[in-house]
Design a protein around this nucleic acid. Structure first.
Lengths: 213, 213
DNA sequence: GGTACAGTTAACTATCTAGTTAGTACACGA
DNA sequence: TCGTGTACTAACTAGATAGTTAACTGTACC
């Protein structure tokens, strides 16, 4: 018979408010995903520690394997969820109007974790043929390119530039500072998370678009 | 007294050509750096394995600590060396002329390992106040910004755009595809290392510059 | 009120990994 | 030819880490 320390701290009613439900499958799952998002975003797949994720989620490491199978599967689940969350936002955006870069910048600036997740994906998985949510992502990007071509036909965007390359470049302009914080700091003296930087970048993107179209 | 297996395979003259010099301090150091560059570039600091670096360098793991002190110090040594190698190239380049983006693209396309090293630095060390070769890098970038401002005064570049933001954006346009190979593939159908992609990107950057200035 | 199963836990294990110990051998100057 | 320091090596270690075991428990359903 094992030492019965397991029940320690669960008997008293005073502690009930700490953990309202003793069992909460969906909650546990959600908490693990949230904790994993933070951990993976901060340290990548190799750098993240399974124990740290479990502790952050306020649960046991075993639950992580119970729900997700492996560290790698957990990373993919996190990425899948985050991508699915953002997918609908892309469609809402005006992707060809004069405010498109500023709008994209605003959408992205609050989700550093998302950009970092994509970077880890690129570095640790970039060579793969298939990527998480391949079809969803490709469809979304193809749609964007189609809209650009449409706008080119209308004359709203310059038609001598390849649509795909243009989309790639707009992503570059907005994502790059968040992806390379050290370069951003070396060039501008500020980190991409600084409020002052965001204001300057925003203003720059605004002027760039107006000058460009 | 330990077993004297150490001399095994070193006595015969027939094996001499495998290892021309039994001692080659500079060579060993160089081989470790080269191996570390490959390993760190491919897998990052956390992902790289010290044993793998030693094996790739054809030496013993102990030598790595003998010459560089720690895994972390080795990474910094690799980064420092690579940055020092590239520093003079920046000054040679014409950074304000109409071919500047294409030229930067050409300079960068052969050194994926360099871009990846910078990405790992950004992800695993981005928050730090100081970065490897801080002064060298900042000086180089400040010089670039000054040249841009000069060109703006001359009227060669649009003067309503902040010089720092412009430099950051030009780096973004060129580095982004290499940093996000999976996004590049999803948008264009090609990896940034594909010859076809490079041609297209080059053409795009050329047209972009001519339309912009 | 019993029972079956999903949810939860602590403790365990095999393996890996950065870093070390302690010793060997080459080269070079005296 | 001897002695000394630099270069080099194999084997080891302590701690970490992903993943597992097995036992336990709340809960839904009968």
């Amino acid at each position: 018979m094992p030492e019965t320390t397991a029940t320690e701290g669960q008997g008293t009613a005073a502690e009930e408010h700490d953990r309202p439900r003793l069992r909460d499958p969906e909650g546990t799952r959600r908490r693990i995903l949230a904790a994993a998002l933070q951990e993976f975003s901060a340290k990548g797949i190799d750098g993240a520690r399974v124990d740290a994720i479990a502790e952050r989620a306020g649960t046991n490491k075993r639950m992580l394997y119970y729900y997700f199978g492996s560290k790698d599967d957990l990373f993919r689940a996190v990425l899948r969820q985050r991508l699915a969350e953002r997918a609908p936002m892309a469609r809402e955006r005006d992707r060809t109007g004069p405010a498109r870069l500023v709008e994209l910048h605003d959408k992205l600036e609050g989700s550093m974790d998302y950009v970092r997740l994509l970077m880890w994906e690129g570095l640790e998985r970039g060579r793969r043929r298939e990527v998480e949510q391949e079809l969803l992502r490709r469809d979304s990007l193809v749609e964007w390119c189609d809209e650009v071509r449409e706008a080119q036909r209308r004359g709203d965007l310059p038609d001598d530039l390849d649509a795909e390359q243009l989309v790639l470049s707009e992503l570059a302009l907005v994502m790059f500072p968040f992806a390379f914080p050290q370069i951003t700091r070396l060039v501008t003296g500020q980190l991409p998370t600084d409020a002052a930087f965001k204001v300057e970048r925003r203003a720059f993107l605004e002027r760039l678009t107006s000058r460009f179209d």
